[in-house]
Amino acid sequence: MTIEIPEQPGSSRPAVTPGKQSKLAFLWSSLLHSWTGMTGFIIILLLLFLSLFGQWIAPFDPMHAEFSKKLLPPMTDGHLLGTDQLGRDILSRMIAGARISVIIGVMTVLIAGTFGTVVGIVSGYFRGWLDVVLMRIVDVQLSFPFILLVLVINAIIGTGLKNIILSLAIGGWVIFARVVRSEVLALREKEFITASVATGVPRIQILFKHILPNLFTPIIILSSLQIATYIIAEASVSFLGFGVQPPNPAWGNMLSEGKDYIFSSWWLITFPGVAIMITALGVNFFGDWLRDTLDPELKGE
């Protein structure tokens, strides 16, 4: 049959984004152009580095107490950031604390994100009474202050690293459920979903092959922003005496222990405080950049 094949002037050109490879290249070049994104990226790299190799970098054993050297100011006796009330090296404790913060941030996001995403998908895609019930649970939980909820759960299930992660996740999954549900609701109405129904794609395949891949970007963005929330929440909870228990060096309980010396030895709380701030700022910078970079592309496609 004779259907003219039009010349495609565009076809000889290299494609704009032919695949995964150049997507990474695109992200990288966008990162190079954003100083906030780059700052966040470097802070995150530093955190990851410290949490992986911290034990070999730290100048002292973070748990080793030496009473003769207690409350040394910064830059004395090889203690770069000074020592605390038990004579432990603050820098080493902070490096060890970075590891705890990273573990808590990442683990909580994995648990809360997975659970919240499943709930959000079930709610948004299958609707019906299940959606009503699940979303009312989410509403109830969202009307409760996050920190208070985490404290209550922590008080019930007990303290310690595992339990603080669990309580943060129980407090945090609702955000994921909410966001994922609204994304699914929006996707359901997209014409390409209708088009695959019209093609005859089974319902379960529509969910896994068409809806899930389109959820990837919003979930990644939300996760990066939530990590900062979890790290701050953990610090707050630890500060209040729940969460990670002393003598384990979490930034939160370093703050808590140091607060009694706030007027005599400022360095006890200043450095962990600054560390929390920088981490939260860095993760937020990175998350904001990620959202700005990926979102317009989503719309543009």
Partner: peptide, 22 residues
């Protein structure tokens, strides 16, 4: 009747007439 091909992208316009390829 149809004009074959499609409008060139701005980057594809050469030194000749912009409509020449169609």
């Amino acid at each position: 009747f149809s004009i074959k091909g499609q409008v060139p992208k701005p980057s594809e316009i050469g030194k000749g007439c912009a409509f020449a390829n169609r």
